[in-house]
């Protein structure tokens, strides 16, 4: 067997795979944040709670209704997306004329409510969610062992991210969306229902978070706090990448996941703060973010 810098390849590639998995979640979540921020001009603090809600709804479907993983992957984003639409219509839409900070505070409050309710109901010990039988087992790639499910998570999130990129950058609907991000009044004057577009965009962003939650359910235990710490890291990812570019959000998400994985190999003590340190450096060197437009 060969060794790289004294690190056995199993350990190196194992951590890189973990980093890639984390990166998949960073990418989907920061993509959702960026899409929502583009049109609504608020930072959706509830995003972590909605990701957690996705995992919980998948668990509930399985436990109470016997609906399995593959259906959950379809149903959960729709269900949680609809709750997002209701939240946008009832609450968030009342704040558009105010300072953006109120949107942040409102969604923070909502996150507290969702987390608190689920913590009361299910405790914080975490609920197991089995890997679907089709994806059990793994492949021996020679230099490392690749569990099938982890490979699937990376592929699925790549597909979803690139699909979102395609819709926003290459289709007519996406063109409306980008136009409304630049100038909602003008787009409205062309007869396009901008408020409805805003509502659906929020619903879509939330659905992305819920989708990530279902993907995460078999890897991490389903527990009410799973979104809270993750969302702060995702905020740092968003600051590093800047929210101006969809592709930028995806690349930054995966890239930072990999870098975090590498720190786990070479300097494990620093792995939990690696992304924050990178954020500090980016703020020093390029304050608008790697892909950001001028602040």
């Amino acid at each position: 067997m060969f060794e790289l810098l004294g690190i056995p390849p199993q350990a190196l590639f194992g951590q890189l795979l973990l980093g890639l998995i984390n990166g998949s979640f960073y990418a989907i979540l920061s993509l959702g944040l960026a899409v929502i921020f583009g049109l609504l001009n608020i930072i959706n603090f509830t995003h972590g709670a909605q990701y957690m809600l996705g995992a919980f709804v998948a668990w509930m479907l399985l436990t109470y209704l016997g609906i399995g993983y593959w259906w959950a992957l379809l149903i959960v984003p729709v269900v949680v997306g609809i709750t997002g639409i209701i939240i946008e219509r009832l609450l968030i839409s009342r704040l558009y004329h105010l300072d953006h900070l109120y949107g942040l505070l409102l969604t923070f409050g909502l996150a507290l409510i969702i987390q608190g309710v689920l913590r009361n109901q299910y405790g914080i010990s975490g609920l197991p969610y089995a890997i679907p039988p089709q994806l059990a087992g793994g492949q021996n790639l020679g230099f490392m062992f690749l569990p099938n499910y982890r490979g699937w998570v990376v592929v699925a999130s790549l597909v979803v991210c690139l699909g979102t990129w395609f819709v926003i950058e290459k289709t007519r609907l996406g063109a409306y969306l980008r136009a409304a991000t630049e100038n909602p009044t003008l787009v409205g004057a062309f007869g396009i229902n901008v408020p409805r577009m805003i509502t659906l965009t929020y619903g879509f962003g939330v659905a992305l978070a819920a989708f990530a939650g279902v993907l995460a359910a078999p890897i991490y235990s389903v527990n009410p706090n799973m979104g809270a710490d993750l969302i702060i890291v995702v905020f740092a990812v968003v600051v590093i990448g800047g929210m101006g570019s969809i592709l930028g959000a995806i690349v930054t998400g995966f890239g930072l996941g990999l870098i975090e994985g590498l720190t786990k190999v070479f300097y494990p003590e620093a792995s939990s703060v690696a992304i924050f340190v990178i954020m500090a450096v980016v703020l020093l060197v390029k304050p608008a973010g790697l892909f950001g437009r001028t602040a």
Partner: peptide, 28 residues
């Protein structure tokens, strides 16, 4: 000094991220 390089919502996210760094530091 780092956080004031960004405005508004980004400022809130940057300060939150730094505080989380202090949290992890305190944990370890």
């Amino acid at each position: 000094a780092l956080a004031i390089r960004r405005q508004g919502i980004y400022f809130a996210m940057v300060t939150l991220a730094f505080a989380q760094m202090v949290f992890f530091f305190s944990l370890q």
